[in-house]
Nucleic acid binder design. Structure first.
Lengths: 207, 207
DNA sequence: GTTGAGTCCGAACGCTCGTTCGAAGACACG
DNA sequence: CGTGTCTTCGAACGAGCGTTCGGACTCAAC
């Protein structure tokens, strides 16, 4: 087995950092904490990363990009608005549940970045929000006027999905599939007043 | 005009602290920041408060209790489950919108407390969650089986409501009444699949 | 054996943190 | 005036922070 490459070590460092940031919070985590937990010396951390803030940025931007790319991929070729929305939700929750620490850091430490780091992440955020709003527009076109303001509904959906780091346990008795189904039903039922058939839910559509 | 009493000065201090905590985050706010912004000397702060953490605790516990008491009051004598749920939501959002800084501190800095402080706030949290779950149970009894798991639905609703500090501007073009109406419709429509009539919404019921 | 790039670290720098302490001003009461 | 309580603060304490710097180790290339 070859010794890990530079990039692999950085990845491992980011994984540790995400876990510790999620546990203690970004501001309460010291570089000495990260050194201890990653087995690297304090000074050694700076060989892989320019600053503590870059560490946070790399966690946020890489995983947000992964969510974004996954969404693009799952929507490719899908035209039915309801199914597009279902897949959007499913992709988000899927990634969230399998990367709880990183996504908590993304959701909870949004205000901890500054300067160009903040601008970069906010740009992705804008695109992602736009994508959801476009889907909601298409849903309205095919299913008549919505029961709620589109922008409010979009942020409510993000609220439902991003809040889960406060309570959801991926290993608990509610599986990711059930969670996704529940959120899809809740949101779709409320937004267009349509009882969502099983067929429209992403899990059964994918299976 | 009489000079402010001890309690009034503490209240003013808590208001300033909530604003600064909301802006910069609890961990990134120093007692020196609070001294500067409140016009009190650094040492002077400790005449009103035992520690920085007690400051956070007082903000969280007082305002959470206010939300809780308001909820109790608005539900008193109301028996229709749908209206109870609507009032629960309306009370929450109403208080949130008129105390954005304090509620952001309550929502965002939940993990910053420790020891007895944490236990006390968590106890209120448990009661509050229980209250919502009970309402959802009653809704199911009167309107048939829900379209989503009760516990998941409860946390989704909290997610929608508590997330608003990330995007909502009480002075923007979406008023609190509209926000509340939207959230009620979204949630009720999704949870029991019932198109919510205007009459069931708290604003019209109260007017 | 020497080079040179890649990797890692002990020790330190300057700074900010939450908190404390002793003293001083304000002010009512005798 | 003197006394005591309430209120306020300047100055300092020890601790921890993010970051830097010079040097030392490894190891393939020549």
């Amino acid at each position: 087995m070859a010794s890990p490459t530079h990039d692999q070590k950085l990845d491992a460092l980011l994984t540790v950092a995400a876990r510790v940031f999620a546990e203690r919070g970004y501001a309460n985590t010291s570089m000495r904490d990260l050194a201890r937990e990653s087995g690297v010396s304090l000074a050694g951390l700076y060989y892989y990363v320019e600053s503590k803030e870059e560490l946070l940025f790399l966690i946020q931007s890489r995983h947000f990009q992964a969510v974004f790319d996954g969404m693009r991929e799952r929507l490719a070729g899908v035209t039915d608005p309801i199914e597009r929305l279902s897949r959007f939700i499913d992709n988000h929750l899927d990634y969230f549940a399998s990367h709880m620490a990183e996504m908590k850091v993304l959701s909870h430490e949004a205000g901890a970045l500054s300067g160009d780091y903040l601008l970069a992440v906010n740009e992705t955020k804008r695109s992602y929000t736009r994508a959801l709003m476009d889907i909601l527009g298409a849903v309205e076109q095919s299913h008549g006027p919505a029961h709620a303001n589109r922008r409010v509904a979009a942020y409510c959906l993000f609220g439902m999905m991003n809040w889960i780091y406060n309570w959801y346990d991926p290993l608990g008795d509610v599986g990711v599939e059930a969670l996704s189904t529940n959120v899809c039903r809740l949101f779709l039922g409320g937004y267009i007043g349509l009882p969502v058939s099983e067929a429209a839910l992403p899990r059964s559509a994918a299976g």
